[in-house]
């Protein structure tokens, strides 16, 4: 055996040993280390799937259900807006929900927004105009924290994009309130800390937000739809999907057009390419 071959074999052997050696601490920990402790709350978490039947805007061909968005807006206005801002949405944007200019004007007027008195220059509140953005219920983050047991209610404008599968998440969260299974809770010593609320669809099952939708019929829909809790939850989740991405449907429709054009152009490019290379392919017998 030549010296060179010996060196090579030794090199490969050392490689093998080093690679396997890298596994040792991990395997040791995995086998003999203390088991990873998961909080008891993991036993109660349930993954939700969103409303039954999904949303009208799901999928590549989805469309807004304007009636649903209007109902969702009503739920936001009458329930959520008590604590949650919607700072990236302006009243003028409501026109996209099928309201006329006059209706948007009236709707904006029904809100009060912070402003400056034109005569005295002092800070005051004014009726909203279409160009104004939805006002925050709190003057600042400290006030929001103080009013809510130190948990600041997040802005909802982008909520459905800021959570994984957000449209389903918002729905699940709103219908996920309830009681932990008492038997299981007793066995695991699980208790929802005071000031928090049990919600099986919240990642650590204890959420600071009190249940916002508690009664069927809490909101009286203008279009006569029965306002069950799942209905209101789905409606407001749809509305928040719109606030997060008003261009969602326009985007998908543009996409079909663009891809259709590209398919056509690529087909032509392929034919042209084949034509140019036609003489290059060796003939087979």
């Amino acid at each position: 055996m030549s010296i060179r071959l010996g060196g090579i074999i030794a090199g490969l052997a050392i490689t093998l040993v080093l690679v396997l050696w890298s596994l040792v601490p991990g395997v040791y920990n995995f086998a003999f280390g203390p088991p990873a402790e998961k909080p008891a709350s993991y036993a109660f978490y349930e993954h939700g799937e969103g409303p039954e039947g999904g949303y009208s805007f799901d999928g590549a061909m989805g469309k807004w259900d304007v009636g649903q968005l209007q109902r969702g807006y009503q739920v936001y206005k009458e329930v959520c807006s008590a604590c949650h801002s919607l700072k990236f949405v302006a009243f003028r944007n409501l026109q996209q929900l099928g309201y006329t200019e006059a209706e948007v004007d009236a709707e904006a007027n029904s809100w009060t927004v912070p402003g400056i008195d034109p005569n005295t220059g002092e800070a005051t509140t004014l009726p909203g105009k279409p160009v104004d953005f939805f006002p925050s219920p709190y003057p600042n983050a400290i006030a929001a924290a103080a009013a809510n047991n130190n948990a600041i209610p997040p802005d909802l404008s982008l909520m459905t994009k800021a959570r994984h599968d957000g449209s389903a998440y918002v729905y699940d969260l709103l219908v996920g309130y309830g009681e932990a299974d008492p038997e299981k809770a007793a066995k695991l010593g699980f208790e929802t800390p005071p000031g928090l609320y049990f919600n099986k669809h919240f990642p650590n099952v204890n959420i600071a937000m009190p249940p916002p939708l508690v009664l069927d019929g809490q909101v009286t829909y203008a279009d006569g739809t029965e306002a069950t809790i799942p209905q209101m939850s789905a409606d407001v989740a749809a509305f928040l999907t719109w606030t997060a991405e008003p261009s969602l449907i326009e985007r998908k429709q543009t996409g079909w057009f663009v891809i259709g054009f590209l398919l056509f152009a690529t087909m032509l490019a392929f034919l042209s390419y084949k034509q140019i290379w036609a003489g290059m392919k060796p003939k087979k017998n």
């Binding site: 996409g255 891809i259 590209l262 490019a269 042209s272």
Partner: peptide, 19 residues
């Protein structure tokens, strides 16, 4: 011509993602 065709395929995948 070959790159033109490749570009077309690339753009289809890219725009599918974007839109």
């Amino acid at each position: 011509s070959k790159d033109g065709f490749g570009l077309g395929v690339f753009l289809i995948l890219f725009t599918a993602m974007v839109f």
